[in-house]
């Protein structure tokens, strides 16, 4: 599997409002509202402003959230990043 590298939207581009179980993300560049659920907000928050690969992000998430089965986490994170890229919230570097 290709380990793709992504960069999150710059912080001032997004307005993030938790609404109970959902999180509403308004993207000022696209004027679109995205309703997302965990772990997408956490992934966005963790990416900060640097370019990160799916595997390194998976490693950090696994450490922070004490997740088991690292291999599965990497696949899961890669999938979620691809979803975020389709929404335009992260861009492939």
């Amino acid at each position: 599997m290709v380990d793709r590298v992504y960069r999150a939207a710059p912080p001032d581009a997004l307005r993030i409002e938790p609404l109970g179980e959902l999180t509403a993300v308004f993207d000022r560049r696209s004027m679109q509202t995205h309703l997302v659920i965990s772990p997408l907000p956490e992934i966005l928050a963790m990416m900060g402003n640097e370019a990160v690969s799916a595997s390194s992000l998976a490693g950090r998430l696994a450490a922070d959230f004490d997740l088991d089965g690292e291999g599965d986490v990497a696949v899961l994170v890669a999938d979620r990043l691809a979803e975020l890229a389709a929404l335009g919230l992260v861009g492939e570097v």
């Binding site: 609404l19 179980e21 959902l22 509403a24 309703l35």
Partner: peptide, 11 residues
């Protein structure tokens, strides 16, 4: 109804 669902329905 939760905030999230009300938000979706109103959009």
């Amino acid at each position: 109804m939760g905030e999230g669902e009300a938000f979706v329905r109103l959009t």
